[in-house]
Nucleic acid binder design. Structure first.
Lengths: 178, 178
DNA sequence: TGGCGATAGTCAAAGACTTGACTATTCTGG
DNA sequence: CCAGAATAGTCAAGTCTTTGACTATCGCCA
């Protein structure tokens, strides 16, 4: 008898359980734990990101990726657009578009690189630096609220595991953004 | 003397180190570990997601979120659009738009709920079920490649830590998508 | 019972991000 | 030294997703 599960009280975690069960018993898939890891990873990332964006950045009229670009430029000094794309994990075109906006808002400066006529160096203006100090103060407080649900050891373990997950990937052929 | 760091050989990890150093020594921010946790979390999630989308879903003409919607509908049986939004972490409008496309492609069925005249029940068509079995076979293999960089214990610990991170958030006022 | 606040879904407009094509510059091997 | 391949950045077009407004329905309490 095909029992239809009651979805009324289903939340993310009971869904993961349900998925585990059905994937293995009904369909014979073998790698439930892998599914669970990636499902949870994405879930966590989305929740946290959305919260930071909604509480810290959108109220200031800034987008999440705008912030990310400013952030790496702030800390990694003047850098080529290419490098910024690499560090933020965005495509080069995205960096280019975002930079256009941020330059217009007076936060970012774009200067031709003298060692390579094709390259462009991104750096923060005075205003950009001021803005980042302010924005990051807020973001860092909120980051702290999130992270401190875990003990310090747990946080370090988490970072370690995530690092391991994405470091050892040259073992197979991973598709990246450029 | 303002030492400009050489960004030439900067990658994600050395950037995180650099950020840690500058944020604490130059700007006096206090919660570096929190920053590192969230930076790494997002990084990992983006890398994995992009890879799955690029290798499994885009080649089949399917988007990442299209897949997610089909996935929860597949496993959690017929469910209300509202519930699908909750389980996938998307907004209700996104579910509505995606559903429109997927219905047109013959993978999804949308039927009015009889217990509530406002609600709509989403379910997979025959074709949708077939497609999911096939797509998920591929995705699950790839998930396995990713996850098996970690031992089984490490995977379980990772899931546990991520769960903890997003479960205990009622302690402060988190902004979610609806 | 009837009206009002809450809720489900959809739509339109806007924004964010990506792909693929294009230009300009640099590098390399003959 | 030059031609062709590779690389940096930008632009145009398209897709995906969201916000905010709107309609329809529901549920509750006066």
């Amino acid at each position: 008898m095909d029992e239809v599960p009651d979805t009324g009280e289903l939340d993310f975690w009971s869904f993961v359980e349900l998925a585990n069960r059905r994937l293995s018993t009904e369909f014979g898939f073998r790698h439930q734990l892998a599914t669970e890891v990636l499902l949870t990873l994405n879930r966590a990332s989305n929740i946290v990101t959305y919260d930071l964006e909604a509480t810290v950045h959108r109220p200031r009229g800034r987008s999440w990726s705008g912030f990310r670009l400013l952030f790496v430029t702030w800390l990694a000094g003047p850098l080529e657009a290419k490098k910024a794309a690499e560090l933020t994990g965005m495509s080069r075109a995205t960096v280019s578009n975002l930079a256009k906006t941020l330059v217009a808002e007076g936060l970012l400066a774009r200067t031709p690189a003298d060692h390579d006529g094709r390259s462009v160096l991104l750096s923060l203006t005075e205003a950009g630096q001021g803005e980042m100090v302010e924005v990051f103060r807020e973001q860092n407080e909120r980051e702290h609220e999130w992270a401190s649900v875990l003990t310090e050891v747990e946080q370090r373990v988490l970072v370690m595991l995530l690092d391991k997950l994405i470091t050892h990937r040259d073992q197979f052929d991973v598709r990246g953004r450029n």
